[in-house]
Design a binder for these strands. Structure first.
Lengths: 151, 151
DNA sequence: CGCTTGCTTCGAGTTCACTCCAGGGTTCTA
DNA sequence: TAGAACCCTGGAGTGAACTCGAAGCAAGCG
């Protein structure tokens, strides 16, 4: 039936407790879903498009995620909310798979991403300023109306 | 043929000069496109979905944008890069069209958006921290390799 | 006058990032 | 050992936000 048992995937806090110690780190797909806030569908899709390394399987073919996989998903989550397109993350994943000789390229990619993030923060701060000006305007208007009403 | 004459729409800086004074503020769609970095297609689409107020027309039916319209597009642009869905901006545009009695609702919407933006900035700063840790790691690896190479 | 360029409409097409379905096998709990 | 809950695959579907195309006016220019 494929329901993601746990409701309320939005609350990402206070969760990181139930990570099992390395060695016994075998999570089912729905555990990982609860953990990351992604759906099982999305996790499988990430794998299909090459955004995940090869995931371990149980003897019957079910996925068993490790702590490493969780770490990777964490990074992916962070990169995702910088607005990085999934295709770029796939590229990064490929570099990781290709081995040590891609260090330089990965490094460059990370630095470029860092610049992007800084730029985005600056943009958002600009937006915040505009928003604050508008909010002040409305607060003033509201006060003026209240005054008028009490006359 | 509908090409957006001016190349390099990304550089949004140093542009705000050619805004004509209020009264003679009549811009063609392609001028606005150059101005905002949006395409003419997108500008027409914004109008279709109700994201723009009614735009003036020339005697032959061509759009003539005003400074007010430019200001509105500026706000839309800012809101867009906070990740606000277009549907929400349409809602805001509707409130503006409906008149003064929607001040309260607009005010609330702006304040909610402000909170969103603050949250997003915080997220991005978290991401920045992760990125910086990774970048340090790669920089170290690079130095280690260089050392090894020079032995 | 013809040419080029730009504008018009409406509807269809594209891209991205999921999201869901059908039809089956597996695992846990009472 | 039954039944509920979970997991598998491949492929199709969805919603958001554009993006493009076709066919046809309109304006400026050599």
């Amino acid at each position: 039936m494929e329901t993601t048992g746990t409701r309320n995937a939005s609350c990402a806090t206070a969760w990181h407790a139930d990570r099992r110690p390395d060695g016994q780190d075998k999570y089912t797909i729905s555990e990982v879903a609860a953990f990351t806030g992604l759906t099982a569908h999305t996790l499988r899709w990430y794998e299909r498009i090459g955004l995940m390394p090869h995931i371990d399987r149980s003897h019957t073919g079910q996925r068993r995620y490790s702590n490493r996989d969780l770490d990777w998903l964490d990074l992916v989550g962070k990169l995702r909310l910088t607005g990085m397109p999934v295709a770029d993350m796939v590229r990064y994943a490929e570099l990781v798979r290709e081995g040590d000789h891609t260090y330089g390229e990965r490094f460059a990619l990370l630095k470029a991403t860092r610049e992007d993030v800084l730029a985005r923060i600056a943009e958002l701060q600009g937006t915040l300023a505009v928003l604050d000006r508008k909010i002040d305007f409305y607060a003033d208007a509201e006060r003026a109306l209240a005054l008028e009403g009490s006359r």
